[in-house]
Simulated scan of single mutants.
Amino acid sequence: MSSMCSSRISNRFRPNAIVNGGWDDARATFYGDMTGAATMKGACGYGDLFQQGYGLETAALSTALFNNGEACGACFEIMCVNDPKWCLPGTIRITATNFCPPNYTKTVGVWCNPPQKHFDLSMPMFLKIAQYRAGVVPVKFRRVLCAKQGGVKFEISGNPYWNIVLVYNVGGVGDVTDVKIKGSGNWIQMVRDWGQKWKTGSVLTGQSLSFQVTTSNGKMLQFDNVADPSWQFGKTYDGRKNF
């Protein structure tokens, strides 16, 4: 990396905002248009990214980075490098909210195929680091801490016989590795359904709900009585604190 890039990196960001200090190589493209409508929902289980606080600062990750959904919620700092014709100065920070699927019918220009590391950005975020006509650019990236406003959120869906909980707006390292739920009894281990949706087959209607959430750095927070006994499916409940 050039001395100019190194200076820009070290002067702009505090070390305590970095999950790991090493920069790695990847490529970046964009999908959708300036509205970001195409980036909503997706393989991590999130819904309306504007309502959920992620906005357009998001990306779909290639197979090598997505890690079967375990990377959902992780945050990355990205900058365009080694292409002076198309790169723009500065960096962006995004949250992983989707999956960029591989295409094994092609062997050229398929950036999301393993083992390539790739970020498919929203168009507004891509245009912050590269010109539109570039299409695809080389980038440097690293994991950073996620700065989220408000508490961790729990969106509950399912039916009286099983529950699926979307855990979102997670600060700190951002990616959740374990969730437990408790009604009026003991703690119940939830299993990852897909992305950051977690499920259990326990009947918990009519009981107040608490959660234990663990992120990939091993930090666990307990959220007591997040939802009172009158909670409803399809509603979102605020944990009132964050990592």
Score class of each variant (00 low, 15 high):
Pro124Cys: 05
Asn163Cys: 13
His118Met: 04
Val136Asp: 11
Val152Tyr: 01
Val176Phe: 08
Phe119Glu: 00
Tyr168Phe: 12
Trp162Ser: 08
Gly158Gln: 08
Gly150Lys: 01
Asn103Cys: 08
Gln131Phe: 07
Val108Gln: 12
Asn98Leu: 08
Lys153Phe: 03
Thr105Phe: 13
Ile181Arg: 09
Leu145Arg: 15
Ser122Met: 04
Gly158Met: 10
Lys140Thr: 12
Ile164Pro: 12
Trp162Glu: 12
Tyr132Ser: 05
Gly135Val: 11
Tyr161Lys: 08
Asp120Gly: 01
Gly109His: 15
Pro138Phe: 09
Val176Thr: 00
Asp120Pro: 02
Gly172Lys: 06
Gly158Thr: 08
Val173Ile: 15
Asn163Thr: 15
Gly172Ser: 11
Phe141Tyr: 12
Pro124His: 04
Val170Glu: 05
Ala96Ile: 15
Lys106His: 14
Arg142Ala: 13
Ile164Cys: 10
Gln131Cys: 03
Lys148Phe: 09
Gly150Ile: 00
Ile164Glu: 14
Ala147Glu: 11
Val173Gln: 12
Phe126Ile: 08
Trp111Cys: 08
Ser122Glu: 06
Lys128Trp: 00
Ile156Gly: 05
Tyr104Ile: 15
Gly150Val: 00
Leu127Met: 06
Trp111Glu: 12
Gly174Lys: 01
Gly172Met: 09
Tyr161Phe: 04
Arg142Ser: 13
Tyr132Thr: 00
Asn113Cys: 09
Ser157Trp: 10
Tyr132Asn: 00
Met123Tyr: 05
Gly109Tyr: 14
Asn159Leu: 02
Cys100Glu: 07
Met123Leu: 02
Pro101Val: 04
Val108Cys: 11
Tyr168Leu: 10
Tyr168Lys: 13
Gln131Glu: 11
Asn159Ile: 02
Ile164Tyr: 14
Lys148Arg: 12
Asp120Val: 00
Val167His: 07
Phe141Thr: 02
Thr177Glu: 15
Gly158Phe: 11
Asn113Thr: 08
Val136Ile: 09
Asp178Thr: 13
Phe99Asn: 01
Tyr168Met: 05
Ile129His: 00
Val170Cys: 01
Gly150Gln: 01
Cys146Pro: 12
Gly109Trp: 14
Leu127Phe: 03
Val137His: 02
Lys148Cys: 06
Ile129Asp: 03
Pro102Ala: 08
Gln116Thr: 11
Val179Thr: 09
Tyr168Thr: 14
Thr105His: 15
Thr105Asp: 14
Lys153His: 00
Asn163Lys: 13
Pro124Ser: 12
Lys128Glu: 08
Ser122Gln: 10
Val173Ala: 11
Val110Lys: 14
Gly158Cys: 07
Ile94His: 11
Tyr132Leu: 10
Ser157Lys: 14
Tyr104Cys: 10
Gly151His: 02
Lys117Asp: 02
Val165Cys: 07
Arg133His: 10
Phe154Trp: 04
Leu121Asp: 03
Asn113Leu: 11
Gly171Ile: 11
Lys140Asn: 12
Val144Arg: 10
Thr97Tyr: 01
Ser157Ile: 13
Asn159Gln: 02
Tyr161Ala: 07
Gln116Asp: 10
Ala130Lys: 12
